[in-house]
Design a protein around this nucleic acid. Structure first.
Lengths: 223, 223
DNA sequence: CGTTCGCTTGAGGCCGTTCAAGCGACGTGG
DNA sequence: CCACGTCGCTTGAACGGCCTCAAGCGAACG
């Protein structure tokens, strides 16, 4: 895949002029990562912004004991490590490719120079960061204020809204979903069984069918 | 207090030219809030950016059941509700003044116009958002990956680093500290007692003396 | 002097964790 | 083609951290 194509889906750079695009290409580096490889680690000095061309990347925080919290999963066209651009320290999270991925990295200083000539890009950049801020805010609220079953119900309903269908695939390993929900695999397993016993859903493998929409919605509120 | 003085401590606007400052003043509204009053609520449409002139403001997320998680406490000169600027929805959090505060609010569209003429301000704005992103990232990690005692130890050591002294005041009500640490008041109380019993600290009221720095540090790692 | 407020302390219970064992699906090598 | 190992998931049992409810206590304040 070429940068030109990647950029089409990109929020940040989608309507750049051809000349600008050529400039951007000069300062960006294209790399591919296999499943499990890490584009960057949270204890590395941050010197680049990244854009995902294809594949999928998870952003996680990990503790000394090896526990992990999934902060965000990046989809093609999205940028990540945006905080890296503006503070001279290390990356705040670790990036892990969960599938073969094409990643463009852009050196911090060069990008800053590039951006400063293009106010539209700055605005979009801020927009992207603002959306992230919202995401993190509600993630905090979720993790702190709610229970696992409420988070699970919310996840299922979000999937339902995204796909527009009552039956869908989880789209990730249950282990990963557990991490996303900030819990252990066993606990997720039990909660899925509970929902199944209550006839709220049916589940076979990673394939889910929502049977009782209202019932699930109640679970979101019910702490 | 006049906007001019507030701006001196402000990260965003600190080195604006006098003319720009005059422009800024035209589009900003000065308001004062008493303790407990709310400059904005998380279910209100977001139409302004805020800057704290003096006083102190807490940003919280609250759940249906009235539980609250403290996301950030804003200090004079800092801006807040920055995410509001770039996405047309509601405020992501609720702001509560914890002391008599002077707050400047700036209409979203007007500020955007103002900013777009000043790339330096955009850059600073992004810097501010980047710092926030980092803050939220580590908050999530803390809340998810660690225990209350670890978070408490981290808080105490941060205070120690900030003040440079082993004895200091908590700087807030214990209730508020509990919310900041994402726990209940009772649990905080027990943990403080535990640290005291272990001779890691001494505490009288909200006045703390650190007695065993290494002991506290161990608690941070220890899950 | 009584009330309110912030904090502490106790008792009980629940949710989620960890450790362990077991199970089916899958792939590989004999 | 089957045996075996691995992997992801499930299930059970026990433990424990944190929460809630409730009572009590000192300090501040009217």
């Amino acid at each position: 895949m070429h940068l030109k194509d990647a950029v089409k889906n990109s929020f940040l750079f989608s309507d750049l002029s051809p000349e600008s695009l050529a400039d951007l290409e000069k300062i960006s580096i294209r790399r591919t990562f296999g499943k499990g490889e890490m584009p960057f680690h949270e204890d590395e000095p941050a010197n680049s912004l990244f854009m995902l061309g294809s594949g999928s990347v998870n952003l996680v925080k990990s503790s000394a004991e090896g526990k992990e919290q999934l902060i965000r999963t990046v989809k093609p066209g999205e940028i990540f490590a945006e905080a890296a651009l503006f503070s001279g320290e290390n990356y705040p999270v670790t990036a892990i490719a969960t599938a073969k991925s094409i990643v463009y990295s852009i050196n911090k200083e060069k990008l800053l120079k590039f951006i400063s000539k293009k106010p539209e890009v700055s605005l979009k950049m801020m927009g992207a960061m603002a959306r992230l801020l919202r995401h993190l805010n509600s993630l905090i609220a979720d993790l702190t204020l709610g229970s696992v079953s409420s988070r699970l119900a919310k996840f299922l309903l979000t999937k339902y809204n995204e796909t527009g269908s009552k039956s869908f695939d989880l789209g990730m390993k249950k282990q990963d979903l557990a991490k996303k929900l900030g819990t252990a695999g066993e606990t997720l397993s039990r909660n899925l069984s509970k929902f199944k016993d209550l006839s709220l859903i049916d589940i076979k493998g990673s394939y889910v069918v929502i049977k009782d929409l209202k019932g699930l919605k109640k679970y979101i509120e019910k702490e």
